[in-house]
Design a protein around this nucleic acid. Structure first.
Length: 273
DNA sequence: AAGTACGTCAACCGCACGCTG
DNA sequence: TCAGCGTGCGGTTGACGTACT
């Protein structure tokens, strides 16, 4: 079918942004706010594609961005989140305040991949490269892979957790009440509610998410640790079982949707569009 | 000192999805 | 219901800096 180009390429600049272009973009967004990226360049007097403006703002000019090296804590968090979410960089970025998906993606490809390889861990599967050295039956590895199904209406999340004896397979439909597999296998699981920008938990719980999320009960229901969210209790990853905390508000348990301790890394403060 | 290889990261590209008329 | 539009996402590219020979 084909789509119309996002902008008139013949009259747009490409490549590195100049200081003047940055200033124009910043000034315009300060005055008018984000949004309407398609019309923004013209309104701001920029010879740039709207997508380019958006990217420049999100990845570089946004005032709340944290510049500088990643901390060891952030490294480990990224590794853990990548193990859970795969290459869902935007979701991972949502858990790292001040970091962008592009930044994390680059950092992953340049640093963390190598770091994992040096540890003997396959950065794609998060399993030991030499499986014989550490039998899967003894290693607690949690892998979530997202894959689009043929009808593209449904997103499968297949979770294989090799803990003591648990194998969990989840098929989570994007559409509520359309996931018999979920209700049968994991009656209490509502994972699709939990994969969301953190701010929604507190400020925008009533607003449905773009990423197929639903907001029905995420703010009022209990928050499980990551392992329990996957239906794997008493696993090595389970943090709440030892505390006896299965239900209760996140402020009580101190864990967010992935079982990440709140307060260790504060939630992203910016408004997620 | 010069040339080459490698690493990093900003930016681009194409696709998919949600919204709207 | 469907097509078009706007936006967001993930993969890839290419310019630039640094390390190595």
């Amino acid at each position: 079918m084909g789509r119309s180009p996002c902008c008139e390429k013949a009259h747009t600049n490409k490549g590195a942004w100049t200081k003047e272009e940055d200033d124009r973009l910043i000034a315009y967004i300060r005055a008018h706010g984000e949004g309407c990226w398609r019309s923004l360049p013209k309104a701001a007097g920029l010879l740039r594609c709207g997508k380019s403006c958006r990217l420049r703002w999100i990845n570089y000019l946004r005032p709340d961005l944290k510049r500088g090296n990643f901390t060891e804590e952030e490294d480990e968090l990224i590794i853990k989140l990548h193990g859970l979410l795969g290459n869902k960089w935007s979701l991972i970025a949502g858990r790292l305040p001040g970091r962008t998906d592009n930044e994390i993606k680059n950092y992953w490809n340049t640093h963390i991949r190598r770091k994992l390889l040096s540890r003997g861990i396959d950065p794609t599967t998060h399993r030991p490269i030499n499986e014989a050295a550490v039998p899967a039956s003894q290693e607690s590895i949690t892998t979530i892979s997202f894959s689009a199904t043929s009808n593209s209406k449904e997103e499968k999340i297949t979770t294989t957790t090799t803990t003591t004896a648990a194998d969990v397979n989840l098929i989570i439909s994007k559409e509520e009440n359309k996931s018999p597999a979920r209700s049968e296998r994991c009656p209490d699981l509502n994972l699709d509610l939990r994969i969301s920008p953190p701010s929604y938990n507190h400020h925008q719980a009533a607003e449905p998410l773009k990423t197929g999320g639903r907001s029905s009960s995420s703010s009022s229901s209990g928050t499980l640790c990551f392992a329990c969210s996957l239906g794997v209790q008493n696993s090595k990853e389970c943090s709440c079982s030892s505390n006896g905390i299965i239900s209760g508000s996140s402020s009580n348990s101190g864990y967010d949707f992935l079982g990440l301790k709140t307060g260790v890394l504060d939630y992203r403060s910016l408004e997620m569009k």
